[in-house]
Design a protein around this nucleic acid. Sequence first.
DNA 1: ACCTGAACACCGTTCAAGT
DNA 2: ACCTGAACACCGTTCAAGT
Lengths: 220, 220
Amino acid sequence: MARARLTRELIVEAAATLLTESTDDITLAQLGEVLGVDPTAFYRHFRDKDALMRAVSDRILSAVTVDLPPPASDWRATVVEICRRLRAAHVGNPRLAELVRSGPPLNRNEFDLTERLLVELRAAGLKPKAATMAYHALIELTVGSAAIDAALAAEPPDARRQTYERWRSAYRLLDPAEYPTSVRLAGQLYQGDAEQRFQFALDCLLDGIAGHVPGSARST
Amino acid sequence: MARARLTRELIVEAAATLLTESTDDITLAQLGEVLGVDPTAFYRHFRDKDALMRAVSDRILSAVTVDLPPPASDWRATVVEICRRLRAAHVGNPRLAELVRSGPPLNRNEFDLTERLLVELRAAGLKPKAATMAYHALIELTVGSAAIDAALAAEPPDARRQTYERWRSAYRLLDPAEYPTSVRLAGQLYQGDAEQRFQFALDCLLDGIAGHVPGSARST
DNA sequence: ACCTGAACACCGTTCAAGT
DNA sequence: ACCTGAACACCGTTCAAGT
């Protein structure tokens, strides 16, 4: 109805909105409807759906590196903050992780994010080789964790709690003779929310990474 | 041609083969062709495609827990071995991680895997709460890492090396004024293969987890 | 009891025709 | 220069009809 001129900008914005509103894949038909335009009009602005999705991913990653504390003030806190934001961006957009899988987006915001992580890891005292290995480790945990948790995160909180409870009872109801430890620890599985579990994992990983700083207690 | 009676077993086997042979999604038409049967015949044996995929995932996870060293002999080595196998299973079957995202498979082999990991983490000296948190951390890193690396792992080794080199030069060619650290460390990014990078991440994570054992140097 | 084949609703994408 | 609308190839799934 309120037809405006179709631009890449408008398409990306509409796609990003659709993406956050649902777990499902975006459809070009949906996109056309939202924009009040023929479903195929979009081919005048993007090569194909994949190109659109990459543009959307750039837009979503733009939130990750804004307004961070000054470089090297507290490397660990900054790394945690970046990873939290990166995870949130992916969790809020379930379909995004699929794109990252096929390779780094190699766009503006992704370069900013990489630079900043590498700066902090170097500031922590890691040597070049260890810094890049730590960078990869952080990305794999963060993006991987988001990919796993995204589907459930899209559901409302109590549906989520119900699902966790369902999974817990699946373990609780196993044969105690065959699965004694699972049965005993069933109540502890999937405790808290996925974000807290990620924080624990990230803390452990950073403890281990800190051990690679020359002169640290654990370094070889 | 060599028509045999169609069974769930035969369908799952054919699907697993197709899945390992390609990065693409399986098609019911493909499946019908391989089995020498009408594409829709499969609905006599499975509710829908999703049910088939879950059965396939069980089959693939069956390799993870076979022939492990006896419980609690060397918890860290056993955990590493389980995670390596779990990652390999997922990396070899790119479409699998998508299923795990929507929830744990809750089938035989997945229960075995969970039980074994929890047993080892308890044997390491972790308290129940810490053991389950560590379990989640290990799964998120392992499965997440596999999801990220799977697409590229499907390509032949030299294509993979070329891709890594292309990514490295993307960083190398950035503006050194804006991205000094990325440019300087570009040559170190994506070094070795994905498996080695995963091993580094897993080692760091396990270092951090070991710090949660009561009485360890790092425990609070 | 199991399989076939036509049919359906829904994808992404192409392309000639409109303005 | 940009959009429309018909068309195409391809999905998963249903269902009446065959054996």
